[in-house]
Nucleic acid binder design. Sequence first.
DNA 1: GTCTATAGGATGATAGAC
DNA 2: GTCTATCATCCTATAGAC
Lengths: 181, 181
Amino acid sequence: MPRLNTDTREEVKTVALRLFSTRGFEQTSLREIAEELGITKAALYYHFASKHDLLSALITPLVEDLQAFFAGAEARARTDQRGVLEDYFDMCARHRQVFAGLLRDVQVLSELDLVATMIHWRSRLDAMLVGDDPVDRVRAVVALGGLQDCVILFPGDAATAAIRTHAIDAALRALTPHPSV
Amino acid sequence: MPRLNTDTREEVKTVALRLFSTRGFEQTSLREIAEELGITKAALYYHFASKHDLLSALITPLVEDLQAFFAGAEARARTDQRGVLEDYFDMCARHRQVFAGLLRDVQVLSELDLVATMIHWRSRLDAMLVGDDPVDRVRAVVALGGLQDCVILFPGDAATAAIRTHAIDAALRALTPHPSV
DNA sequence: GTCTATAGGATGATAGAC
DNA sequence: GTCTATCATCCTATAGAC
């Protein structure tokens, strides 16, 4: 029996994203996704060629946003650290769910050939912010790691908005040896 | 045929820890562990009652260390923030492999009934360090999240030793609104 | 302590009816 | 678009021989 809502494909993505982000990709079976939607596994294969394909559909927006972020941040990273941290925080917040799923299931990165585009994005961002000095790099790791944790540990749009300024202030202090905040 | 090394149980733990920490718990099968050791799956069951049991054996030292850390840190958390951050960093570094495995496979926590003892250890640590003020809590999340990322992103004992002071300096700055470093 | 053999179940994926 | 039925493959775990 056909279902009322015609946009099953979008529904699948919504449910899958929620399950992937809490359990991880490999730990979520197509059976679970199908059951929650009230359809069968086989029906999923009408909408997505494979499990891999479903994950790709979920992750594409993040990858594109990430590339745009790098393109926009590269030029001003050294002169406007605060602005770059803000953009990074906002991007993490926008894709919080996908993010959590990825961090929870690093294995998936290599499976998706995201490695080529993403494997070193954190260290690329480090270098962009502070250059090559090893001590500065440590500071950048603390700052960025702290920001990322905030987005995940204070979930929800309201909480994110409430902590944004304070989190970025703290990250900026971690980043800067001579506080000019 | 019996193997030369009598301490198969320890060998199993070593191999399992390496595989768990890179692939995650659920993603590592007993077949893989057995093959790498040159024994069969069935032999594993002589040394460990179940897969769950094997994981418990690996994780027990971390749990005990964590409890000891909390017991020792609670009293001086507000007066000696730097000392507590140092202890936390060292503990994360000591159990880096188990840590990476857990972060990579959060699902495992609930499976092990670790939830009761660990589910809120991060937020408990936050509160211990800074009290209840929401803004201070954000600072604590940045500081602790940053430290944890350092331990994982600079792997190896040498790298850990090299960055220790700088990472803690940065975390302390994130934690402290009026820098007294 | 280690083996072979197997039970019992879940998984991703496909074929073909409706 | 969704179904039933099925496949091949993997998993954890157990029984019993050596």
